[in-house]
Amino acid sequence: MDTYYYIEQIQKMLAEASKLPFSNKIVIDHDKILQLLDELIKSLPEEIKKSRKILEERQNILLEAQREGEMIIKEAKEYIEKMVDQNEIIKLAKEKSEEILTNAKKTAREIRVGANKYADEVLEELENQLQKILQSVRKGREELNNKL
């Protein structure tokens, strides 16, 4: 189940709980809240797996960009070697290879920056979700401890 579902269930349980007369304390089913907290904890690894998958995708994008860049450089070098004997063609080939190399480096840099930005955004969202979950769990525990 979704992590948010368990949080919502805990919030609902707390909101609908009976209040003790002349106090701000409430009565909740101890076993049920513990069960919901257990389920909440079980649901967390999915979120963590998602972040790990995103990091792996980022790494794959970076590796693919580097491979593509190396392939372009290799092709440019091979092209230059074939044209060694012809003076004007050599000049044009060097210019073209430098242009290709510059573009490859620029593309690899852009992909790397984009992948890093995407991974950071996803991790930031995951961090925010986990903070909300932790805050909810702390609040639930605090309320449980206040009843003791």
Score class of each variant (00 low, 15 high):
residue 18 S to F: 03
residue 18 S to T: 13
residue 19 K to C: 01
residue 20 L to S: 04
residue 21 P to W: 02
residue 22 F to H: 10
residue 22 F to P: 02
residue 23 S to V: 00
residue 23 S to P: 01
residue 24 N to F: 01
residue 25 K to T: 08
residue 25 K to Q: 12
residue 25 K to N: 09
residue 26 I to Y: 00
residue 26 I to R: 01
residue 27 V to K: 06
residue 27 V to C: 02
residue 28 I to H: 00
residue 29 D to R: 01
residue 30 H to S: 05
residue 32 K to P: 01
residue 32 K to V: 02
residue 32 K to W: 02
residue 32 K to Y: 03
residue 32 K to T: 03
residue 34 L to P: 02
residue 35 Q to F: 09
residue 35 Q to E: 13
residue 36 L to C: 01
residue 36 L to K: 00
residue 37 L to S: 04
residue 37 L to G: 02
residue 38 D to A: 15
residue 38 D to K: 15
residue 40 L to Y: 00
residue 41 I to R: 07
residue 42 K to E: 11
residue 43 S to P: 00
residue 43 S to L: 01
residue 47 E to D: 07
residue 47 E to V: 05
residue 48 I to E: 13
residue 49 K to C: 06
residue 50 K to T: 11
residue 50 K to W: 10
residue 53 K to N: 12
residue 54 I to R: 09
residue 55 L to H: 05
residue 56 E to F: 05
residue 57 E to N: 13
residue 57 E to G: 09
residue 57 E to K: 12
residue 58 R to C: 07
residue 59 Q to E: 10
residue 59 Q to I: 10
residue 60 N to P: 03
residue 61 I to E: 13
residue 62 L to V: 15
residue 64 E to D: 15
residue 65 A to Y: 01
residue 66 Q to D: 11
residue 67 R to Y: 11
residue 70 E to W: 06
residue 71 M to A: 12
residue 71 M to V: 06
residue 72 I to T: 15
residue 73 I to T: 14
residue 74 K to H: 14
